[in-house]
Amino acid sequence: MEKELKVAALRNGTVIDHIPADKLFQVVSILQLKNTNYPITIGNNLESKHIGTKGIIKIADRILSEDETGKIALVAPNATINIIGEYKVIEKRPLVPADEVHDLVYCANPVCITNHQPVPTNFYVLKDNGHVKLKCRYCEREFLREEIKLKKK
């Protein structure tokens, strides 16, 4: 009951729940919600039994693409994504990291060409023993998910 008071129910759209509180605004940035005209509800620092404090995002009338969920998987791999139709969950979207990410994050190598010239970044996503790593297409360095910084859009 208390939950429903905090965040209004959604008729149609997407709910992204269990986002770690410190990752919420990264997800907001990935989805470029700053520029959206869809009704959105964003909550953060909400109590969570599983992860301490969490963030939640509800976007009305919009269903996320797999490309978008693939990007979210990079920063919040344990979030849950539910697609809502007529107040019911009609799809639980698995968070599978994208195979490649285009111009989403900076390369963490300070002497990579992408940090010095107007070159969009490109990373291959490598899955290695449960660790997700990003490999820069240009400088060929590999980085852990925790080392990467999102580009500001």
Partner: peptide, 27 residues
């Protein structure tokens, strides 16, 4: 080129073949 990845980028934009003779500490 002193920057790493410069050769890959050059190869992507170049109409003629690029031979990398060293891009920083990369290749």
């Amino acid at each position: 080129h002193p920057l790493e990845g410069a050769a890959r980028y050059a190869a992507e934009v170049s109409p003629v073949p690029i031979i990398n003779a060293g891009d920083g500490a990369n290749q």
